[in-house]
Amino acid sequence: MLPISILDLAHVPEGSTPADALRNTLDLARNAERLGYERFWLAEHHNMIGIASAATSVVIGYVAGGTSTIRVGAGGIMLPNHSPLVIAEQFGTLATLYPGRIDLGLGRAPGTDQRTLRALRRDPNSADSFPQDVLELQALLGPLQPGQVVQAVPGTDTNVPLWILGSSLFGAQLAAMLGLPYGFASHFAPEALMQAVAVYRARFQPSQQCAKSYVMAGVNVIAADTDAEARRLFTSVQQTFTNMFRGTRGRLPAPIDDIETYWSPMEKVQASAMLACSFVGDAETVRERLQAFIDRTGADELMVAAAIHDHGARVRSYEILAEVRRQLRPAEARAVG
C-alpha cells in the first residue's frame, strides 16, 4: 500500500485564533493516527497571521506528545534561518522524548520575507551555505567523533532521519548527492516536478540512511461526499493563492459559491498553475486522479495538504482519502499487475 502522509500548516481560519488552529492540529493528528497515515508534518513560516506553526519544533513536540504511534516531523525546517547546532539540539531532544517517531525535512527557502529574515537575525545570503549546513547538522545528529569539541545534547547519535525538500533541481541534486530522501513541493510549485524527480533518481548515491532513492510528492487533496461540495471547499485555497498575488495574505478564508466572481482571468491562470497538483472531488474522483498522478510520477509516498476552512470538513476529507488509499497502487505494482 502506498504510504500517504499529512502536511499541516496549522492554518488559522477566518473567525478563529492561533490557539484554535493548534488545538485543531492536534485533533487532526490524532485522527491521522487513527486512520493509518504514515506521518504528520508541520512547516515553518514566519510573520503570517494565517499560519500558527512558526515555532515548528514546539508544535511538533505538542503533536508528538498528544499521539502515540504516528511519525511526526518538519516539512520543513528552513535551515538558513537557524544554526545547525540549535536544530540538532531541538530535534535531538524531540527524538529523545519520542524515539523512533521524529523526521526532519529541510528546506533552503527562508519561509518568509526579507525584513522578517533580518528579524530572525540571519544573513539574507545564508541560503548559499545550505549544503554545508545540512552536512554539519547530519554530523551533529550522528555518532560522536574523536576530537569533536562541540556536540548537541541531546542530539548526538540520535540519527534523526533527514529529508531534503524543494521545488527545483538544486534540492534534487543535493538529495541525490547525499543519498537522502527527497520531498518535492508540487502542492504549490509543480512546474519542475518531473524534471527534478528524474534528476534525483538518475544521480542518487546510496547512503547509510537510504539504500535507494525515495520520492515524496506533495499534493493537495480536498475530498467530500460530492464533487460539488469538494469544489466549494477548495475555493478557500483558491482565494488564498489569489490573495498572495494581491499582496493581501491573511487568515484562511471561508469557501464561496463561485470562485469565478473572486479572481481575475490572469489570477485564475496564475493560481491554477500553482495548484495543478490538486485533486478535488468525491472518493471516486480523487481515486482516479491520484492514481494517474502516482502512475505518472512513480512517487514512493504522497504528502497531502488540505487547507479547509471548517475543521470537521477537513477531518472528513482525510477520512475519505484514507478509504481511497486502500484502492491506490504504487506505480510499479500497477504496471506489472
Rank of each mutant, 00 (worst) to 15 (best):
V58F: 13
I51F: 08
F40S: 01
A54L: 11
S53C: 09
E33Q: 12
Y37K: 05
L28V: 05
N47M: 12
S53W: 02
T67S: 06
E44Q: 14
L28W: 01
G65D: 04
T56A: 14
N47W: 08
A55H: 13
V63A: 06
H46S: 11
E44D: 10
Y37G: 00
G61F: 05
A55Y: 13
L42V: 14
E38C: 03
G36V: 04
H45D: 03
I49W: 02
Y37Q: 03
F40G: 00
D27F: 01
I60Y: 01
A52C: 12
G65I: 10
G50V: 09
G36K: 06
R30A: 08
E44T: 10
N47H: 14
T56S: 15
A43E: 01
I51T: 01
I60K: 02
G50S: 11
R30N: 12
S53M: 06
F40L: 12
G36Q: 07
Y62M: 15
S57H: 13
G36W: 06
Y37N: 01
I49A: 12
G36D: 06
G36Y: 05
R39W: 07
A29S: 08
S53L: 07
W41Y: 12
S57Y: 03
N31M: 08
A52L: 12
I60F: 03
H46T: 05
R30Y: 05
Y37C: 02
Y37T: 00
A29W: 04
A52I: 02
G50N: 08
D27T: 09
R34E: 14
V58G: 09
R34G: 04
F40V: 10
T67H: 05
G66F: 07
A29P: 09
A55L: 12
S57L: 02
R30H: 07
S57V: 04
R39M: 08
I60S: 01
V58L: 15
R39P: 02
G61E: 05
V63W: 04
I60V: 14
G66N: 06
A52N: 04
W41T: 02
T56P: 07
L26N: 04
S53Y: 02
V59L: 15
I51V: 15
A54C: 14
V58H: 13
R30P: 06
V63Q: 00
H46W: 10
R30D: 07
R30G: 07
A54Q: 08
F40D: 00
N47P: 13
A32P: 05
R30Q: 15
H45G: 02
G50F: 06
S57N: 11
G61K: 03
A64H: 00
Y62C: 08
A29F: 10
E44M: 10
G50A: 11
H46D: 06
H45M: 13
R39D: 03
W41R: 07
D27R: 13
G36T: 08
E38Y: 14
E38L: 06
Y37D: 00
E44H: 05
H45A: 08
L26C: 08
E44F: 12
T67Q: 07
G61P: 03
E33M: 03
A43I: 13
T67R: 09
A54S: 15
D27Q: 12
R34C: 03
D27W: 02
N31R: 15
M48D: 04
T67M: 10
R39Q: 11
L28I: 01
A32D: 01
L35P: 01
A32S: 11
Y62L: 15
N31W: 12
T67A: 09
H46I: 07
N47V: 13
G36N: 06
